[in-house]
Design a protein around this nucleic acid. Structure first.
Length: 265
DNA sequence: AATATTGTTCAGCA
DNA sequence: GTGCTGAACAATAT
């Protein structure tokens, strides 16, 4: 479930591994993941170049090349990265393999082929093309901005938090956690939220994403009072011990505690 | 064998 | 225009 924290961890992982390594070749095995470029063009455009830096916007990762082009990686619902040296360590479902001159390989792994990869001149063009809202983890994304971009919005709070065109980065799992920490019911209507509640949601948004990143987006490592480890019915709320319930919002299954998030004024 | 996942996009509708 | 629902996409687990 690569949402903002997961992608941030991939960014840090790529920064710590594949930067400045000369690319010998690129092996793209699934053309449906590539947008606007075919496998052999990808190979020839990256061959001999190096990754020099990275940038993240919401759930999108951009890798800067030494010729000022950028490689965009989106991880869909199931993507991840793995850097390794021994070929027997190649993960299953590797869709794209970057081979480096130092003998290492970077695998773009994607069991469901619902990701997207492309090469572009400027990440901002992609952000504009997709109509993405501001990245929620930047300093510029403060409470004023949050309140402003939600101003006049209707519908359910969970839907709005997950809308990438309003704000980029929050998906199904983390919207549940943010609302759980804020004590707000996922189906609460925007218009029913008091200023004070909105402020609390904003605080929890920043807090939850930062905590998740600090724990390398591994739910098992999250604090005891986090809901993410207890997603699913048959689970108990970590705070009150009551049953976790399932609710459908924006076509997705959300989980919440009706006692702790009963109304969420 | 049918169903749920998981993010994005798009069609159809209120 | 806004927002909701459901479908499609791939492939796996239950």
């Amino acid at each position: 479930m690569p949402e903002l924290p997961d992608v941030e961890v991939f960014k840090q992982y790529l920064d710590a591994t594949a930067l400045h390594q000369k690319i010998e070749s690129v092996d793209a095995r699934s053309r449906r993941i590539l947008t606007g470029i075919d496998a052999s063009d990808l190979d020839s455009r990256l061959q001999g170049h190096t990754f020099e830096g990275t940038r993240r916007h919401g759930k999108y990762l951009f890798v800067e090349l030494d010729d000022s082009n950028w490689l965009m990686l989106h991880f869909g619902m199931t993507g991840s990265l793995k850097y390794y040296t021994h070929s027997e360590d190649e993960p299953r479902y590797t869709q794209i393999l970057f081979h480096f001159a130092n003998g290492y390989h970077l695998a773009y792994v994607m069991p469901r082929k619902l990701g997207e990869v492309q090469v572009m001149g400027d990440p901002d063009d992609l952000i504009e093309e997709k109509g993405l809202g501001p990245d929620v983890l930047t300093d510029q994304f403060d409470f004023e901005t949050f309140r402003e971009i939600l101003g006049g919005r209707r519908g359910m709070i969970k839907s709005r938090l997950m809308d990438q065109q309003i704000m980029a980065g929050v998906g199904n799992v983390y919207s549940d956690e943010i609302l759980f920490q804020a004590g707000v019911h996922p189906r609460r209507k925007m218009g029913d939220l008091k200023e004070e509640t909105l402020e609390r949601i904003f605080g929890c948004l920043k807090e939850v994403l930062n905590v998740a990143i600090a724990h390398r987006a591994q739910p098992e490592q999250f604090p005891d009072n986090y809901l993410t480890r207890h997603r699913g019915t048959e689970h108990q709320c970590p705070c009150c011990g009551g049953p976790v319930e399932r609710v459908k919002v924006a076509g997705r299954a959300g989980y919440f505690c009706p006692r702790c998030q009963g109304n969420g004024d």
